[in-house]
Computed example of a mutant assay.
Amino acid sequence: MSKTIFITGASKGFGKLWAEALLERGDNVAATARNISALDDLKKKYGDQILPLKLDVNNRQDVFDTVNTIEKHFGSIDVLINNAGFGLFGTVEETTEQQAREQMETNFFGSLWVTQAVLPVMRKQKSGHIIQISSFLGLTTLPLLGLYNASKFAIEGLTETIGTETAHLGIKTTLIEPNGYATDWAGASAVQTPSDIFDYNPVREEFAKSGDNPDIWGKPEATIQPIVDIIDSVNPPKRLLLGKIAYHTMNQVYRDRLEDIENWKEVSVRAHGY
Rank of each mutant, 00 (worst) to 15 (best):
A182N: 09
D260Q: 12
E266F: 04
G75Q: 10
G9L: 13
G75Y: 09
D256N: 08
D232E: 13
Y148W: 06
E165T: 03
K265H: 08
T96I: 09
V191A: 11
V57H: 08
K124Y: 00
L22A: 01
L158I: 05
T173V: 15
F108A: 04
E105W: 00
R257I: 06
N35K: 12
K124M: 07
R270D: 05
N58T: 15
D62Y: 12
L258K: 02
K12C: 12
K124P: 02
N68P: 00
F74S: 03
E206M: 13
G218Y: 02
T8R: 15
A117K: 01
I224P: 04
D65Y: 06
D41R: 08
T166L: 14
F207E: 04
T174C: 10
Y200W: 14
L158Q: 03
P214S: 07
G170N: 05
I162G: 01
K152Y: 06
S210L: 14
V79Y: 06
S268A: 14
E93R: 09
T141W: 00
L258C: 12
K12M: 12
A182H: 04
E93N: 06
I70A: 11
Y254V: 01
K72V: 02
V67I: 13
L88R: 02
K12A: 13
D40M: 05
E165C: 05
S127W: 03
T183F: 04
S134C: 13
L112V: 14
R255H: 14
R60V: 08
W264Q: 08
A208F: 06
G218W: 02
S233K: 11
D196T: 10
V63W: 02
E177Y: 01
E165R: 06
A271E: 14
F108S: 02
E20I: 00
I261L: 14
R270E: 09
E105C: 05
Q132C: 11
P237Y: 07
V63N: 06
A186R: 04
L139H: 15
P237R: 09
T66D: 08
K244I: 07
G180Y: 07
K12G: 05
R60D: 08
L112Y: 05
I131T: 08
N28E: 07
S195Y: 02
F109M: 15
E71L: 01
E102N: 14
A19C: 10
T32H: 10
S233C: 10
P226T: 03
D184F: 00
A188T: 10
T140F: 07
S151F: 13
G180T: 09
T96W: 05
F86P: 00
G87L: 14
H129Q: 11
P220M: 04
L53C: 11
Q99I: 10
L23D: 12
R239P: 13
D212A: 15
D199C: 04
L241I: 11
V269P: 10
K3E: 08
G211L: 14
D229K: 07
L169A: 12
